[in-house]
Simulated assay, not measured.
Amino acid sequence: MSAKKVNFGKKPEALQPVDLEQWVSDRESVVSQPEQAQPEKMKRLTLDIPESLHKAIKRQAVDAGVTMADLLRDLLEQHYGTKQ
Rank of each mutant, 00 (worst) to 15 (best):
V31Y: 00
K58E: 14
V6I: 08
V6T: 08
L20M: 09
Q38W: 03
G65K: 06
Q84Y: 06
Q78P: 01
R59H: 10
L76M: 15
P17G: 01
D74N: 02
V62R: 10
P17W: 03
D48L: 13
I57N: 04
L72A: 11
A61M: 06
A37H: 07
M42V: 06
D26M: 06
D26K: 12
Q38L: 14
H79K: 08
W23K: 14
A14W: 05
E51C: 09
A3G: 05
Q33G: 10
E51P: 01
Y80H: 07
L76Q: 04
P12Q: 10
M68R: 10
I57F: 07
D74K: 02
F8H: 09
V6W: 00
V6R: 03
A61Q: 00
Y80Q: 10
R44Y: 08
L53K: 09
D63L: 15
E28T: 14
E13Y: 02
A64Y: 06
T82S: 13
G81I: 06
R44Q: 11
V30E: 12
E40P: 04
N7M: 08
Q38C: 03
M42L: 07
Q84T: 05
A37T: 08
M1D: 10
G65M: 00
K83F: 01
E51Y: 07
M1W: 06
A69P: 00
A64L: 13
D19F: 08
V6M: 04
D48N: 09
Q33E: 07
K58A: 11
P12H: 10
V24Q: 12
V30G: 06
K11W: 02
K41A: 04
E28A: 14
A69D: 11
V31W: 00
L20G: 03
E28Q: 14
E13P: 00
